[in-house]
Write a protein that binds this DNA or RNA. Structure first.
Lengths: 219, 219
DNA sequence: CAGGATCCTTAGCGATACTG
DNA sequence: CAGTATCGCTAAGGATCCTG
């Protein structure tokens, strides 16, 4: 039985929260920012949400026109994707994530979904505009992603790249640690927590694009 | 007893929601965007929040460094104000409000706080850059505000203006209706729901700055 | 009266088990 | 795989009562 409580406030903020303010709602939207996802994929990305609650949130978000059921890209089953209205939440969630990252206290040990890491990667990476383009393949939670570095910009797309200089497979949390400390790449490869195929220097460039503050200044 | 549950997710969005995701938290921040407020003022602005819950939220937001207790501007009692970190939520709340306003369904009858109306006014007004500056005084819920129109921009500040072309007193909801339909000003004055003192045309200019789409295009 | 604290009820949440 | 059913728990909602 879906939630139906309202702030009874005409303000736009309150009306937005009537739709997005229930628990887990915005994290469901976050998971759909990069690619449509199926019910079970959402459960893996958000392991602490119970199935009935996830079903409730999906119903509510669909009812409010934030997401819709998509006719399944492949495999027969359906998936959930953002509507145009839902996609307009992307800059808001990006800003909210930036705000949350600069928290005073260090983050306690916690999980991280593939989407979270990729969103952070895309938002934080500042690749050298002068460097030649490079394409990497990332494999997170069993799904392949294409990451393009070109002209000082980063593009993250779901699916296999047509061609890539290198491929990296790791747990999302491990990749996140790697982004924070690129020098640990060699150790991570050695102990098997990260598997790299192809040109290791391409991976180094990807990690350095996030870590290096050479182009900092928030712009 | 303050709420302490976490999404246990290292993503910045989830960590932001650990602080701001509990019910009423973001609406409390909204109320503090324009001016520090006292406990009782927050209760009037958010009539549907119970006093214990409001006290809980204030404690939590203070603990997370979003608000702080201010030594009371006047009157002896204390007030709550945003910290620097809390003030950085302003653009996010603005964007969220814009998103919430363009909802598909018409808004059901609901209340509106003075802050809500003023935030909307400030965000939506597009005064003619060529017109001469004008200062209006607004009195909402017993508190005076100074609204300046100049150079195509609107400034909203708490407190009495040094000098003003006109003063308008009304319920926040009435002012909101007036912003949506400036032509009803005469009727509203006639039936007493709006009290205007001074130059009526200054008020008309204020209302027209919000209603007129002459400078639309969202920029 | 401002600024809460206390109590009680209800509804949303979390976890587990179950079904088409 | 994609949900539904059930149930104990906890936060939200509402009223009342305290304290300076």
């Amino acid at each position: 039985m879906p939630t139906s409580r309202s702030y009874r406030d005409s303000c736009g903020i309150a009306r937005a929260l009537d739709v997005l303010g229930e628990r887990w709602a915005l994290l469901v939207v976050r998971e759909l920012l990069l690619v449509p996802q199926r019910f079970s994929e959402l459960r893996r990305a958000l392991p602490h949400v119970s199935s009935n609650l996830l079903a409730d949130r999906l119903r509510e978000l669909e009812h409010h026109g934030v997401i819709r059921r998509a006719p399944a890209p492949a495999g027969g089953a359906q998936a959930y994707e953002l509507t145009e209205r839902g996609r307009r939440l992307e800059p808001i969630l990006g800003a909210l994530g930036d705000w949350g990252i600069e928290a005073p206290q260090p983050p306690p040990p916690a999980a991280l979904s593939a989407t979270s890491v990729l969103l952070f990667l895309r938002g934080a990476a500042r690749p050298d505009p002068a460097a030649p383009p490079v394409t990497c393949r990332l494999e997170l939670d069993g799904r392949a992603w294409t990451v393009d570095l070109a002209d000082g910009r980063v593009q993250v797309a779901p699916g296999e790249p047509a061609t890539a200089a290198a491929s990296l497979r790791a747990e999302p949390t491990t990749l996140s640690a790697l982004l924070a400390d690129p020098d640990s790449l060699a150790d991570a490869c050695a102990d098997g927590s990260v598997a790299v195929v192809g040109d290791l220097s391409a991976i180094r460039r990807l990690l350095a694009a996030v870590a290096d503050p050479w182009s900092s200044g928030d712009q």
